[in-house]
């Protein structure tokens, strides 16, 4: 589904991603872990199409199409979804009409008829229950005045409504208490299927107790330096990121 080959990016001349290789297939959940500043969020933003990142090399194929060549809205319409680490507050744009507009545009792109108001509201009600988000929040301005946990649950609500093929969760667990974390994880688990895939970016192993990944990758200094199964996350949690750094420097200077 997603093929990242030797992806390199920089921001304002500073190299952030130094050659990422990653393959994600339908039905899989991949976790990407790494210390602060390793490039995790950059990877998420580049895949979603944020302008401030310059791609300096490599390619990304999404269902065989050149992802980096697409506008952000077309990536979303093709089925890519980014749950933002910091969801943006947009006063004056209501949550409900934002969702309606987004679904309308995605359906139009796919050549589908618009959803009737009745079907839309029914869908919304179902998905709302999934993330246990109060109806009052759905009618409010997008993310405005939402707590941290409400914002993250709202991201998952959008995920549920838009039904993407590939969802990237960018530190969706950060700032969540355990109840909110369970709700978010539960939402994701109910949404996972053979046809979709998730890339879960996180700093902490904790989330992976609830969303069990098929693969775990460790991102450090702009590269994936280690990949494994979920056990890798436990090892990382136990030994800390210094362990990875030490191992890396040992590899870099094998003669010592």
């Amino acid at each position: 589904m997603l093929n990242i080959h030797n992806l390199q990016t920089s921001v304002e001349g500073k190299e952030i991603l130094k050659g990422i290789n990653l393959q994600v297939n339908a039905g899989e959940i991949h976790a990407i872990m790494g210390p602060n500043g390793s490039g995790k969020s950059t990877l998420a933003s580049v895949l979603a199409g944020k302008e401030s990142y310059e791609v300096t090399g490599g390619e990304v194929l999404f269902d065989g199409k050149d992802l980096l060549d697409m506008a952000p809205e077309d990536r979303a319409r093709e089925g890519l979804f980014l749950a933002f680490q910091y969801p943006v507050e947009i006063p004056g744009v209501s949550n409900i009409n934002f969702l309606k507009t987004a679904i309308g545009e995605i359906r139009a792109y796919k050549g589908l008829d618009p959803l009737s108001s009745k079907d839309f509201l029914k869908l919304l009600k179902d998905k709302q229950e999934l993330v246990e988000l109060k109806a009052s929040l759905v009618n409010r301005s997008l993310n405005e005045g939402f707590s941290g946990g409400e914002k993250k649950r709202n991201e998952i609500l959008q995920l549920a409504m838009l039904e993407p093929k590939l969802a990237i969760l960018d530190e969706t667990d950060s700032g969540l208490d355990i109840d909110a974390l369970r709700i978010v994880a539960n939402g994701v688990n109910k949404l996972r299927s053979e046809n979709n895939a998730f890339v879960v970016i996180t700093h902490y192993q904790r989330l992976l107790d609830y969303i069990v990944p098929d693969f775990v990758h460790i991102l450090y200094d702009g590269r994936i330096i280690k990949s494994g199964t979920k056990e890798l996350a436990f090892e990382l949690e136990e030994k800390g990121y210094d362990w990875v750094k030490d191992e890396l420097s040992a590899q870099a200077s094998p003669s010592l």
């Binding site: 302008e51 506008a71 952000p72 809205e73 979303a76 933002f84 934002f98 679904i103 792109y109």
Partner: peptide, 14 residues
């Protein structure tokens, strides 16, 4: 710009 990107990332055209 952040708001614009957020909307676009949900499939809403520019």
């Amino acid at each position: 710009k952040d708001a614009l990107f957020y909307l676009k990332a949900r499939g809403i055209g520019e």
